[in-house]
Design a binder for these strands. Structure first.
Lengths: 227, 227
DNA sequence: GTTTTCATTTATCATTAGATAAATTAAACC
DNA sequence: GGTTTAATTTATCTAATGATAAATGAAAAC
């Protein structure tokens, strides 16, 4: 009760379980992002300045520690406001999509997020597929519905969205993501004015998406209607 | 000298060194693509139906075996005709670029190519950076030069290509690549008419790239000219 | 058909992996 | 201030890891 309630963190030993757990997870995120998910628990412990068996006091297995890492990086960093933004009809769908992509890409374009994501995919985990399924259903589906509406095309209720329409959105999404891939997966330095580039790419996408989508929907309608 | 010069490959043992080396490299490509570059030599040998020490008869170390894998997958699959195609002025640069991307993506969009590429990047190898540098200098640089020319903009000799212009090309390139990433890295099933989708995306890109590039070059010129 | 060659296997080493049990010791409690 | 609690460490198990040396045996050479 004197100058500090918590024991002064200079002599590092003996953290509370909550503190230690937090510290391990944070360290594990940085560690596994750097060396890959096959990184050894001994080296992780060493970097944290603790012994390896202590990890097992807090996490029953390496696999369960990784689950907590995934939770911290992917589940906890998802912003529900994105789904709200996409539904906000006071803005054009183009503007909504632009704002979403710029904030989304800014959120995920980090060393940790991208490298663990790709490592998990390569390892065979279903994490990336499940995550992207969420983006598809919560964001891209309403975006396409709104695009149909603004373009005066048939509602998805009458003519379901087709895979090729989704690919249009995945296309621009992947184009922006590619900056992060080159930076953090390929280890290249991509020194650009990212704001400028993203706006230019989204401009070009929005300018071009109308005609292409009209064509896709027409073809889709013909296909569905006749066969 | 009777019916077959080569010993009948039914009783598999005793290959010639050339055959065995080929077999090991082919097996290693499939193996490391599947399990990652940390895959164990013992399991690779087991899949090949040989013993693990035999690998070391042909390759002094796992690292050198991986070098041979990189060579087989990335160096040997590069098509010099791509560089010829891009220089062929009997076609519009749009058409040249379309043909390049469609053949290029068809070449690299395989389980082996993509997974080993990303594994190598995550491992810290400079392979992806060096490879993409080649694409940039041998393909994208001439594409941008031709685009400048067709749009009546300043030649790169007078005003060097800027990073943002390259990003336009990297953008559409990444958009197409993203199909392969979702398929082979995220393990998703992307069931689309790829021909149709790629054409649509390239259409949209080519339709939009003119105005955006004019703007970028103008801004770049203003920046360079004044400062 | 015997000998030679060399592709392949068996046996083995030193190191490292994830995980567990028992011993230690800093801090909380009365 | 002695006792209790529990955060942390030391010691250790078992199974793999890349790599090497010596033994084997199928095919080529003569």
């Amino acid at each position: 009760m004197s100058q500090s309630d918590k024991p002064l963190r200079a002599t590092k030993h003996r953290l509370t379980p909550a503190e230690r757990e937090r510290q391990i997870i944070d360290g594990a995120i940085a560690f596994f992002a750097e060396v890959g998910l096959d990184g050894q628990t001994r080296e992780l412990a060493h970097r944290l300045g603790i012994t390896q068996p202590l990890l097992y006091r807090y996490f029953p297995s390496k696999e369960l520690l990784l689950e907590r890492v995934y939770d911290a990086v992917y589940v906890k960093r998802w912003k529900p406001e994105w789904e709200v933004l996409i539904a906000d009809r006071s803005l054009s769908i183009g503007e909504r999509f632009r704002r979403f992509e710029k904030d989304y890409q800014r959120t995920i374009m980090t060393y940790d997020w991208l490298r663990i994501f790709f490592s998990a995919g390569l390892k065979g985990t279903d994490l990336p597929a499940r995550y992207l399924q969420r983006v598809r259903s919560q964001i891209f589906t309403p975006v396409l519905a709104e695009l149909r509406r603004e373009l005066g095309l048939l509602s998805p209720d009458l003519l379901p969205l087709c895979a090729e329409e989704f690919e249009l959105i995945f296309g621009i999404h992947g184009a922006l993501l590619y900056v992060g891939i080159r930076r953090f997966i390929y280890n290249m330095d991509v020194s650009i004015d990212q704001e400028l580039v993203f706006d230019a790419e989204i401009d070009a996408f929005l300018a071009g998406v109308g005609p292409v989508m009209r064509r896709l929907v027409a073809e889709h309608q013909a296909r569905t209607g006749k066969s």
